[in-house]
Computed example of a mutant assay.
Amino acid sequence: MPRARTALTTTTALALALGLSACGGTSAREPAPTDDATLYPADAAVETSIGTYFAYLAAGSSEAAAELSLPEVGLDDDLAMLLLDDTYAMIDGRPKLVEIGEVTVSPGEDDARATVTYELAGAEHTDEIALTRIADRDDGPDDYAVLIPDGEWGIDTTGAELLPSDTVYRIGGWDVSAAFRSAAGWAGGGTPPRLPAFGGSYQLEVTVPGDGGFTDTVEIASSTFYVGDASDGALEALAHEHGY
């Protein structure tokens, strides 16, 4: 009998506690208000965009990376041929993100700077990159694009203007002659423009057809984030080596 009485007493206590709660004890708390800045802070959005950008580069998805780059480059232009996936997939030593360091966002959150450490062609680099916001989202982190030196990044084509107009250029077996011929045409007797190209080592096969022609390969590197490269002038040296 004592055991039954204890069970009854416990049941009654539970019923009373539930009744008191239902009759207006402690009311449920309202959720704390949030806004986009709390849910999706700008520095985290910058880091997400950087991570996505480098993931595209590492995978050889250069066309997607170009969508997250400024200034915009028309991918249907012959000069942008090295930015196509078919070309970039053939490149060795594409950038791989190691670490994102300090991130600084402007007061209006439109611009940002970040220190990134990445591997490129077997060497580790640390650079500060600039970004600008390209999409302001209410349901997720904003998108930021990487700012690249306009007209100063990519591959040096100096020397293309010295070679015959029917010279054939290939990267990984992929014919990119249109890009180099276009650069030579733009030179107009001066220095040809650089070809936009993301980071990596480009094994460029050059073929001058006909009698006295040649086929040779030169390695040209691109850095993406800083101007020029140690391989600048490599194509010109190749042309001179073969008497052009």
Rank of each mutant, 00 (worst) to 15 (best):
A239G: 07
L162D: 13
T115N: 11
A66M: 00
T207I: 05
S69Q: 09
L238G: 09
E99D: 12
T34S: 11
R5P: 06
E109V: 11
F180W: 10
E30M: 08
S21V: 12
V116Y: 00
V218T: 06
E152V: 03
G51D: 13
Y88N: 04
G172V: 07
V98Q: 13
V105Y: 03
M1L: 12
F214M: 08
L238Y: 04
T34Y: 04
G93Y: 06
L162W: 03
G199C: 06
P141K: 07
M1C: 09
L162N: 05
G228F: 03
A184G: 10
A42E: 12
T6I: 12
A66F: 01
L68T: 07
L14G: 13
A234E: 07
D127E: 14
A45Q: 07
G228Y: 04
L131A: 04
E102I: 09
F54P: 00
G188M: 14
Y144C: 10
S223I: 04
E72Y: 10
F225V: 03
G51H: 04
R181L: 13
H242K: 12
T10P: 00
E72H: 09
L131W: 04
E63H: 12
V116A: 02
G101F: 10
Q203D: 15
T12Q: 14
E99Q: 14
G199T: 01
S27P: 15
G140C: 07
T157Y: 02
T117S: 15
V168S: 08
V168E: 15
H125Y: 15
V218L: 06
G93C: 06
H125G: 03
V46T: 02
L68D: 13
G19R: 15
P196R: 02
Y144Q: 06
L79Y: 00
L204H: 04
G60D: 10
G154V: 02
L57S: 04
A45F: 07
G200I: 03
T12H: 10
A59I: 05
Y244W: 15
G200P: 11
I129P: 00
D142V: 00
A178N: 10
